[in-house]
């Protein structure tokens, strides 16, 4: 019998949702197990960080939020032959990345003192036995070299299973280069995208069937998002929030989307519309366009000196 490959999985600054996606492999788990064994996985088994076995493939969920994350990432990198940056937090920082809009002091105060569900009369901020937060959330590849990125929040089980099986068979894995609109079943208006109002989902109720969501007033991140998920959300009338991150041709997902929305907005009255109108309708630019990718953006964190 040929020797089986050794797989390890690890969670860093994430929510373990990506691990559920592994647990959800279903029958493909059998295919994976035929080729490999899970040798190290804090989610599935008891593990000791000082007894990490040599690994052929390491799947890492979560970005780098604190010192411990970085230390473990570096340690495991040495043991692993091939590292997959797994899920949007590892790939782009993910939702925890919105913490980059605040300083570490602000975050700690919010978590330990201001939060109503945390009784802490003396206002103590723990600093012993808990790893210190780094100045900002970073994607995994800013701490260690990664060999493959599989984004998603969480990545679809079938996508991961396919990627892992292909890897174990020695094939190369390639991500699509197209955007979501390319695979979205909704119809784009033939005269091009145009929107004349920006609304939130609850304000429009059920969107019209089969028509692209952007002309209906929803900010759908599809144009700047990689087509890995197969446009699951738009097919059930929910706008894409960009959780799989940008396509390989996009440097900064949020900025690309800002460009798209501002151009499409009022395009029919291009020359008469008040240019300020689109900005007026968007209160939370960062929260809308950078929900998942702020730490990987060109401006990855709020500048603290107030631009001075």
């Amino acid at each position: 019998m040929v020797e089986k490959a050794k797989i390890g999985t690890m969670w860093l600054g994430g929510c373990s949702g990506c691990h559920l996606s592994i647990a959800d492999f279903h029958e493909s788990l059998l295919d994976v197990m035929e080729l490999a064994d899970f040798e190290f996985s804090p989610v599935l088994m008891d593990t000791k960080y000082d007894e990490v076995p040599e690994l052929d493939v390491l799947i890492v969920e979560g970005g780098i939020r604190n010192e411990e994350n970085r230390e473990l990432a570096e340690e495991l990198r040495e043991k692993a032959n091939f590292v997959i940056s797994y899920g949007t937090c590892a790939a782009y920082g993910g939702i925890p990345g919105l913490g980059n809009l605040h300083t570490v002091e602000e975050l700690e105060k919010e978590a330990y003192i201001n939060s109503p569900s945390t009784p802490n009369e003396e206002g103590i901020i723990p600093n012993e036995d808990v790893p210190a937060l780094e100045s900002r959330v970073r994607p995994l590849n800013e701490a260690i070299d990664v060999d493959l990125v599989v984004p998603g929040c969480p990545p679809r089980s079938d996508v991961v299973a396919e990627a892992v099986i292909a890897l174990l068979k020695g094939e190369t894995v390639e991500l699509p280069t197209t955007n979501l609109c390319d695979v979205c079943p909704r119809e784009k208006p033939p005269e091009g995208l145009a929107m004349d109002v920006i609304k939130r989902q609850f304000e429009i109720g059920k969107p019209e069937d089969d028509l692209c969501l952007i002309p209906q007033g929803l900010i759908c991140m599809g144009p700047a998002t990689i087509s890995l998920c197969g446009a699951e959300c738009p097919s059930i009338a929910i706008q894409c929030r960009g959780c799989y991150g940008p396509t390989s041709k996009v440097m900064d997902q949020g900025a690309k989307m800002i460009s798209a929305i501002a151009s499409d907005y009022g395009i029919e009255e291009d020359k008469t519309i008040d240019p300020e109108q689109v900005a007026d309708q968007l209160d939370d630019i960062v929260g809308t366009f950078y929900t998942y990718t702020l730490p990987a953006a060109l401006i990855p964190a709020k500048m603290q000196k107030g631009g001075k």
Binding site: L101, G254, A255, I258, S259, I261, A262, S263, Y265, G266, I267, D270, K271, I273, P275, E276, Q277, V278, A279, L282, I285, V286, I299, A301, K302, M303, Q304, K305, G306, G307, K308
Partner: peptide, 22 residues
């Protein structure tokens, strides 16, 4: 015209990210 609309959003973003729209 499209640039004009885009820049209004960029100013807002620059404020939010602490770069400053000035």
């Amino acid at each position: 015209y499209k640039l004009d609309r885009r820049m209004r959003l960029v100013y807002k973003l620059a404020e939010d990210m602490g770069i400053g729209k000035e």
